[in-house]
Amino acid sequence: MSGQHRTGLPEDCASCRKMFAVICEHHLASPDVRLTVAEIGTRCGLTRVPAQRHLSHLVKHKRVKADGRTPVAGATVTQGGEVPDDATPLQWAVNVTAPDRTCGKFLRVLAGQGWSGQLGPADIAAAAGASLRTWKGHRPHLVGARLVEFFPVTVLARDGRHRIRQADRFRLSSGVVVAAPIGNSYAADAAGDQAKTLVDSVRWYCASPADMTRGYRLVAARLMAGWPAEELLRRAVHPEPDAYVANPYGLLSTRLPGPDDQYVIPAEAAVRGAAIIRPRCRSCDVPFAGGRTSPDGICRECREELTLPLPPVVRVEPSRCHACLRQVGPAQWLCDGCGADQRLPA
């Protein structure tokens, strides 16, 4: 066997692509720990001599620095790459085609946090060795390429009146758009029944009969556009409102995708070959380890944070007319049209 790597770029070699992913993943996780060539080869399924050959090829083509352990900033090994079914988020990010080299660098930083997570703009820029302005300029490129989705996060301030913006949550996307199914009367009826079940399961959506019907139609339209019910439910219930919802339909319409938005398969589901639904914490939206959950739906880290002294939040549940189900005052039994003079007993 020849001691030289065959001609061609690292993108055309499966072992080089796999080794580059291993080097990037270890560099992000433990940059101060130096792996030996044998350890790198073991992670790639190679012995020491072939591993040294592929590592030298990566160094020769400027994918890895001369030390053999540090990936070159912005370098990618993507063309012709096939992601295995058990690929990590970083392996997926290394093999996916980013809009440009800088976008690929930012994508690998996000993938180092997992398939989804929460990371501030300054932290993303610092991890990529770039400026905050550079990240703000390349973020629209990743969103436009349908490789990352961002979701705004706000929390109620301690005064109970204002909301504070936190770092956006992100989720890696595959870039594969799901086409809307061909509509027919049977599909419309099925979507309507499924929409009713979905909206009724959102416990904070307590609206008038007219707004309940509008909510059913809104969800049914998204289902007919190709959006999975699980994705719509996840967007509707997370995060759970921490105050009284005065306009339920308005909140629901802002949380659900717009009429022109298309559903993009998440990267994790695309790699695994099927949609993955795992229980998530109601507070931070992070999946429970091993698929385990807790009775209150809150993970241990969030429960420890919730033990901090916070001002009490008064939840006001809307009252309804016992005749027409319209929303009435907290002490009313019937609405004005059905006889508002009758009051609840003290």
Rank of each mutant, 00 (worst) to 15 (best):
Q79G: 10
Q79K: 11
Q79R: 14
G80P: 14
G80N: 05
G80R: 05
G80I: 08
G81E: 03
G81M: 01
V83E: 09
V83N: 10
V83R: 09
V83C: 14
V83W: 00
V83L: 13
P84T: 12
P84W: 13
P84Q: 12
D85E: 14
D85K: 13
D85W: 15
D86M: 13
D86N: 15
A87G: 13
A87S: 12
A87W: 11
T88V: 15
T88N: 01
P89Q: 04
P89E: 00
P89H: 02
P89C: 02
L90G: 05
L90T: 08
Q91L: 01
Q91T: 10
Q91C: 02
Q91K: 01
Q91E: 13
Q91W: 01
W92T: 13
W92M: 10
W92S: 09
A93W: 15
A93L: 14
A93D: 15
V94P: 15
N95D: 12
N95K: 08
N95P: 04
V96R: 14
V96A: 11
V96I: 09
T97S: 07
T97I: 11
T97Q: 06
T97L: 11
T97R: 07
A98S: 07
A98L: 05
A98T: 03
A98P: 13
P99K: 08
P99L: 02
P99W: 03
D100N: 12
D100T: 02
D100S: 09
D100K: 05
R101M: 02
R101S: 08
R101P: 00
R101V: 01
R101K: 09
R101F: 06
R101C: 01
T102H: 01
T102A: 05
T102S: 01
C103E: 04
C103Q: 06
C103V: 02
C103T: 04
C103F: 04
C103I: 01
G104Y: 02
G104H: 03
K105A: 04
K105M: 06
K105H: 06
K105S: 03
K105F: 01
F106S: 05
F106L: 09
F106T: 05
L107G: 11
L107C: 13
L107T: 07
R108S: 01
R108W: 00
V109I: 02
V109A: 09
V109W: 03
L110Q: 04
L110C: 11
L110N: 05
L110P: 15
L110W: 11
G112I: 09
G112M: 10
G112A: 04
G112P: 14
Q113T: 07
Q113V: 07
Q113K: 08
